[in-house]
Design a protein around this nucleic acid. Structure first.
Lengths: 214, 214
DNA sequence: GTCTATATCCCGATAGAC
DNA sequence: GTCTATCGGGATATAGAC
């Protein structure tokens, strides 16, 4: 969900709406998907609201019926993505397996999210640092800290259990792994001949072997 | 060097120049360093020529005495960086050591370049894809192909020699390693307490162990 | 080599008709 | 829910004085 207090959608004025069939939420999601692809490909600043409207087949002014601002669009995209990621990480950890399997699970779920959330990951990677400086996007820092704790906890447990080498620095290895899995969407093409399962297999082999004791 | 045919600097009109002492090249390098830091921190599109001029203590119009355009600045920054990187990779390979040592050398020289070229690496990573689509920056694709060949050649030799696992896919492992080493400048801070040698040590341990046969 | 002053363009966003 | 029309602002770049 979007950060508290924000209104992404303009307030609706009447109580009964005549037409829907497809609700406003559906239309909003369509427009957000278009915006996300453009933000990911060209960058947030370089993408104009006219670009987004063009792609949607409407005029730029019409976008403001659905969203308060360009900023609220990227806000919605990022907060939704972070929610999903946090939830998928929690699910992996809740399985209660050993450090090695949990580490594998985190790598796997991160890479798997490329298929559905490729644009959001790219936006998170490319625009995150810049946005995190603004109060409206302070939740980015919060999510970042949760992620770091989850990953480093698993790494530390693996060292303690003897499965991982005791020479690894959990914080640095976390950064390596995080940067690795979140950067793959730069060249991964959904629907291409290179399947996610192959990428996951190769990445798991290098990363798991890279931290394990032999 | 900049790509052929471009004139980054305005043509000088006279034959004898009265003043230099510190040549124009020095002043240009100063301004480029300022621009590179801003491009890296805020993004190329979000950085205005006024930002650069402010930081240099002059007015925006004055910048155009030194450079044709904002675009020629990023061009100069990127082409210089790619030249240096290519040259450092060639030096490592020319040592003629085994696949493992050569692989280590490539990782090491990439990470070491963070200290001197942090901004350029960030710009290359963040703006490269967008720029490569323009004819002026087609040399980015050329450099990219050379880098890929160098890295994958080393990986293939390691597989052949038996030092690296024969299950690795050189192209995919190359992408993992490349993304890993070029993403570290996102969080590395020159002059901070986290020394490059420590990062290099941890990264080498994971990556070399991750590809090696045990 | 820098400043003054400005041309030209395009951005995000708004008001109100339909 | 989209279009018409437009605002106010800020962008890159230029011409010429100093």
């Amino acid at each position: 969900m979007a950060s508290s207090g924000r209104t992404t959608r303009r307030a609706s004025k009447g109580k009964s709406e005549t037409r829907p069939r497809r609700g406003e939420a559906v239309r909003q999601a369509e427009l957000l998907a278009i915006a996300a692809d453009l933000f990911a490909d060209r960058g947030y600043v370089a993408t104009t609201v006219r670009d987004i409207a063009d792609e949607a087949g409407i005029l730029s002014g019409s976008l403001y019926h659905h969203f308060d601002s360009k900023e609220s669009m990227i806000d919605e995209i990022l907060s939704t993505f972070l929610e999903q990621t946090l939830s998928s990480y929690e699910a992996v950890i809740a399985e209660g397996k050993g450090p090695k399997e949990t580490f594998e699970g985190l790598v796997r779920t991160s890479l798997e999210s490329m298929v559905e959330s490729r644009s959001a990951i790219l936006i998170y990677q490319n625009e995150g640092r810049f946005l995190a400086a603004q109060p409206r996007f302070s939740y980015l820092t919060g999510a970042h800290e949760k992620f770091e704790k989850m990953w480093t906890d698993v790494l530390k447990k693996g060292v303690k259990s003897g499965e991982f080498r005791d020479t690894i620095d959990p914080k640095l290895v976390y950064r390596l792994v995080r940067d690795t899995v979140w950067t793959a969407p730069r060249w991964y093409r959904p629907g291409g001949s290179l399947k996610p399962e192959k990428i996951i297999g190769q990445y798991l082999a290098v990363l798991v072997d890279g931290v394990s004791k032999h």
